[in-house]
Design a protein around this nucleic acid. Structure first.
Lengths: 209, 209
DNA sequence: AAATTGATCTAACATCTGTTCACTGATAAA
DNA sequence: TTTATCAGTGAACAGATGTTAGATCAATTT
């Protein structure tokens, strides 16, 4: 099963995947990559590409899978670190920022191609983000005892904020990213506070905003 | 000044602008457009393009200007309708949704190319959105009497939410858009409530989120 | 040991791209 | 009326792209 041949094939497959991810930078979206560029970066002939993927779209969807995997690792790591106690929001934001810094290529794909040009792509990415959102909504439902609709909306708002800021943070220095993280934390706290406030609408007064 | 010649030139210039805007659809970002495609759609020879713009980038930046104009019209219209009274958030969201429905091309550019591939583009769009954010922060500062930092952050959060949802809403039916608008309103109310709550942190209890 | 498989290569194709050049002909200026 | 301007044209270029076809030759299977 793990013959020399299969191993070598897997190796150049990874080379292709990494070639694509490494080519993604602020000026280069996945769809501006050409098959030939990727093959060149992976040091194989353009024609060899077809031994691994039917076309660039298939490579791209593979990368999106990779992105989903990364998001799930993020959640797992967040849960672990939360067991030690501390502010949920702060810890989550810090982990998120770490992840985008250490997985730039994949997050670029997720955050940029999110409103991108290919329907299949957008749907695949939306699916991954929806998983993420659903897990967050679940947490809010169980731990924070919010009504379902409110939990869903709070999760939606939070994920939109975090991913939007994340896109901005992708190419900042560690210091700038830390600054943005503080803003993010405050914005998320607004949302959390607001959600619990909306839950008990018998507050002092009803802000007519 | 307004000779036959100048008039005709302005007309084909508009034709080029509209050709580009009309080609933007869910599957086609501005940077996937070719000069030749745009010229074809505008019914001129590819070479004639250069009589109007130095290259596609210049056309693109012109479209971004168009987008800024649209955003300013949106604000003006919102202010007018607000004079008649009503929920600020509801009115604003409804106007926004109307605008994206009626200016799909321009908003696609603003919302898609926002995290796009060209630095010049991203900066130009960020500039327009920052104007928008600044006007909103001003309003929150003056009308809602929030401290500056909080006003800035609230505006930031709101704009991120609205533009993120806006991108999703671009190609929905009117009914689906209206549904999304309701969710948007609730999410924005969370933020507004949360911001005023954070302002007076002596509330009943401090949620350790 | 012989036969087969399959990941890789080079060469070649048709097609699209941005851009240049010299030209035309109606409008504008003299 | 003569002259100059200039938006628009078609032909042609060099380069990049996706994709096909055929050959190579080491790893695998028989």
């Amino acid at each position: 099963m793990t013959g020399i041949r299969a191993k070598q094939k897997e190796k150049t497959r990874r080379a292709l995947i990494n070639a694509a991810l490494n080519q993604l930078d602020p000026q280069t979206s996945f769809f501006s990559l050409s098959l030939r560029e990727v093959a060149r970066e992976a040091n194989i002939a353009p024609t060899s590409f077809y031994r691994h993927f039917q076309n660039m779209d298939e490579l791209g969807l593979t990368l999106v899978d990779e992105g989903g995997l990364t998001l799930r690792q993020l959640l797992r790591q967040a849960r672990q670190r939360l067991a030690d106690g501390g502010s949920v929001i702060r810890i989550s934001v810090e982990i998120f920022m770490d992840f985008i810094a250490n997985n730039r290529g994949v997050f670029r794909l997720l955050l940029q191609e999110h409103s991108g040009t290919s329907k299949e792509f957008r749907l695949a990415i939306a699916r991954e983000i929806d998983h993420f959102k659903a897990e967050l909504a679940d947490y809010l439902l169980n731990e924070r005892k919010l009504p379902e609709h409110l939990a869903r909306l709070q999760a939606d708002a939070m994920v939109r904020i975090v991913f939007s800021i994340g896109a901005d943070a992708l190419d900042l220095s560690a210091a700038e990213r830390a600054e943005l993280a503080e803003d993010t934390i405050l914005e998320l706290r607004m949302i959390a506070r607001g959600a619990t406030a909306l839950q008990k609408p018998k507050g002092e007064y009803n802000d007519p905003t």
